[in-house]
Amino acid sequence: MRLLRISKQGRKALLFLAPTIALLLFFFIWPVLLSFYYSFTDMTLSGSKSTNYNFIGFNHFVRMFSDPLFRTSFANTLIFLIFSAIIGQLILGFFIALLMRNKNRHFRSFVGMTILVGWIMPEIVCSFCWVAFFSKSGTLNTALTSLGILSKPISWLVSFPMVSVIIANIWHGTAFSMLQFQAALDDIPADVEASAAIDGANRWQKITRIIIPMIKGTIMTDAILITLKTLGVFGLIYAMTGGGPGTKTTTLSIYMYRQAFGSYQMGYGTAIAMVMLILGIVLSACYVKFSKIKL
């Protein structure tokens, strides 16, 4: 990849990166650093501590260890992440992309479009659809009772809130993974699979021994991107359940919001956000290590 001499490259690269760096510094990195600083203070959104806040070191981070709500939201975040991102979006997306290969073009674009609708739908609209779907007199109950599966309607958002938001998030996000896998699968040369068939590999072996190793990079990139994205999911859950009932669907991003904007504890709220940042880094590092792929 050596197109130019390195010395010159560095300077040229900077020129290309300059607009991005300027934009990121001003609108992103600077506010992030400020948030980082706030997380070590007792700043509040209103009240006397809103202007006269103090530096309190690691107090917030120590407090988290004994904060049962923090522990609950941490656990909820992991559950939400594993089921909606990894099991849901990644595996379902891969499965759909795999099935879609070599299918009729019109059929492919029809199926693709139905899955994409959820993706391009604004979060808030998405949550209205799902609230209506899961509500006591909603679509799901109407269907299940008329089929005789349920004798009386269940209020899903109250009885199974986590399952409900996970399903909604899978619906909202699967298209992203599906599109990536479709592209990656298209790139697998036909002869590789053909030779595997000659060797007598069955369907399952073909997937695990040939296809997955070949698109390992895509799997990992996808895993990182959807993990980071799912960590930050806020609007969907907030509009569907508000993090409730109680704390049943309070993830870290909901808890962060409740602390910073609901209880005005800006300092503690930003400290929670910093934990989310660390969690994102740790998870991504795990994926990289696990898949032994260099980016």
């Binding site: 409730g244 109680g246 704390t247 049943k248």
Partner: peptide, 12 residues
């Protein structure tokens, strides 16, 4: 705090 605890009490 009251608001969250009351909701937790009735729903969990």
């Amino acid at each position: 705090q009251i608001q969250t605890i009351v909701e937790e009490l009735v729903s969990t």
